[in-house]
Design a protein around this nucleic acid. Structure first.
Lengths: 338, 338
DNA sequence: TTGTAGGCGTTATCAC
DNA sequence: GTGATAACGCCTACAA
């Protein structure tokens, strides 16, 4: 148990008001009293009680970062950057795992309201669950809500969205420019972004219906069970010439499994992933992938929060970030006569 | 601004005590009053103020998880698991980035004390900085401190350490059993565990001095600039037959770069990494690596915290976890006559 | 079963 | 410059 301000005041022979002034550098205190207080503070091993302080000031100077799964590299990076930039502003931010279960997610949001945080940043799509959306709307009534990769159109909710549809289009255009005409989309459908990519893929399919084939692999895949897709591809060797995987882990799993099946990349099939994980540039051949522009996410998020706390109103509630296609060896151009 | 308990009491026509009883399911309240309160709670959009509650109960039911860098997969996993198991106990835990700068780390620890958390879990070695150790000792005077991969011998400090020396020994034994006699250790020396591995490597070097050569690559390496080591190896083709990299990223970087230089793995050189990252089983050839047994870390950490909060005293303050060598293709045995 | 009132540790507004 | 003292919102004996 740390000492209270009373004990310090008593030991220093002054009032609690004076002690408070010294602690917070507010108001004038005579040098003599100041040093007495400083000494007493030391002697008592005093640590301020933030509960009491927050209660008295009715402000916590804290921000909650909520993620479904902090093990996700993408969100860990964003969280890290936000913590840094907000720390500079004097705000304390912390990260919470809210899990995949909606009821628990809602509980966490309410918990944050109980803790009287100054803002809630949701690092992941709220999905389309009505309960979750309603919880966020409720929250936005008392505190600004930032959605990183989600969208809710409401007064106190600010959204930053990655344009996955655009990125998917870029992938397709790239593949087609290389001569691919038989495209396959593979995903584990565990993120809402997977569906956005799928929709964009289908849309391009309709757009280019006369020029190329667009297929969606119907089962969910991850790096462990991508053997099924690969076997499927190997069984129909001439059916596909370009594959888009919704993330690098799947792509890398496929890269290995297709290699084992004797399918050459990029000669036989070209392959693209998403996320630009470290290993995408270490594999053989290096993986063409999409960079999520995490830095930009962070910049925008920080900017929103800073403006908000700086008392400025933000006209723009919806920010779109365009990912960038990184062309590497899995989509290298191979001249026909080779 | 959420309503206070007073407003709810007034609206329901009861006292604040009754409202509090309803909120906390403590004490008996007549059905009639209960429903009145419940209704008022709804009408006022009441959210409990945790600051006030914590102050009154002088307990926050919360635990701080501190990490130098939450982007580190290893710690993100541990943090995730701890959050889950503590949530079941009714404790709220949150993760904070404390950065690499000692002064900031100390600040964060003190901030946690101000917040009156019930425990501090440091997810990463405190290093040997005197300031940091002193801060942790101070903290342990008022709250239990758990060190995941660190060691300080003090009453209220509990330590969980990964036995990296043991793991390194295992790697060396494995390589020697395959006939390797010219071993190289490569690291980026950014973690304290890197030094432990290096020490263990040197110790084995002395132990097996008559049988084999042990070399430590003097510069710091990561996946980007591991080209230097690889060039060095290529320039002295017969000088090394086994490489231990202190983490998988370096190992995977080397795997690619050695391949580009025409050095065959495992035929020419055998390679081992550390951490068992996802891609270690997706690369070609698959990487022999060391699994950190994250699940065990979590189990032990959770167990310590549960016992502590359950009021039990823990005789054992130091837990050691043995990593496990996973033998894969980069150390496959190649018969001599092949 | 219910209400009153004191206390949790700070901050901040007054007088002095 | 300094010191009472009233908030801040909630919990919990204690009394009724």
């Amino acid at each position: 148990m740390s000492a209270t301000i009373y004990e310090v005041a008593q030991k220093a022979g002054v009032s609690t008001a004076t002690v408070s002034r010294v602690i917070n550098h507010t108001g004038n205190v005579s040098e003599k009293n100041k040093s007495k207080v400083l000494q007493a503070l030391q002697d008592c091993h005093y640590t301020v009680n933030e509960m009491a302080r927050s209660l008295a000031k009715s402000s916590t100077m804290s921000i909650a970062l909520l993620a479904k799964d902090i093990r996700d590299d993408y969100y860990a990076h964003i969280a890290h950057a936000i913590e840094l930039s907000l720390g500079d502003l004097g705000y304390f931010s912390f990260l919470c795992d809210i899990g995949y279960e909606v009821s628990h997610q809602v509980e966490c949001i309410n918990m944050m309201l109980s803790k009287r945080v100054n803002a809630i940043v949701l690092l992941s799509s709220p999905g389309d669950d009505a309960q979750m959306i309603s919880a966020l709307l409720d929250a936005s009534a008392s505190v600004p809500v930032i959605l990183v990769n989600g969208f809710i159109d409401a007064p106190n909710i600010y959204c930053i969205q990655r344009d996955d549809a655009f990125a998917t289009q870029e992938c397709i255009q790239h593949l087609m420019s290389l001569g691919c005409r038989k495209l396959l989309f593979v995903s584990d459908f565990s993120y809402s972004s997977d569906f956005i990519k799928q929709q964009a893929f289908l849309k391009c399919g309709r757009q280019f219906a006369s020029e190329a084939d667009f297929t969606i692999y119907p089962s969910s895949c991850n790096h462990l069970d991508c053997k099924d897709v690969c076997a499927f591809i190997a069984a129909n060797p001439s059916k596909f010439d370009g594959v888009i995987a919704s993330n690098d882990i799947i792509a890398l799993g496929m890269l290995r499994n297709l290699w084992k099946l004797g399918i050459k990349i990029p000669q036989d099939i070209k392959l693209i992933g998403f996320d630009n994980v470290v290993f995408s540039s270490l594999c053989i051949p290096t993986l063409t992938t999409v960079d999520n522009k995490i830095d930009e996410h962070c910049k925008v998020t920080s900017h929103i929060l800073c403006s908000l706390f700086g008392g400025q109103s933000l006209p723009q509630h919806h920010h779109v970030i365009r990912p960038q296609l990184l062309i590497r060896e899995t989509t290298a151009f191979i001249p026909e006569n080779e």
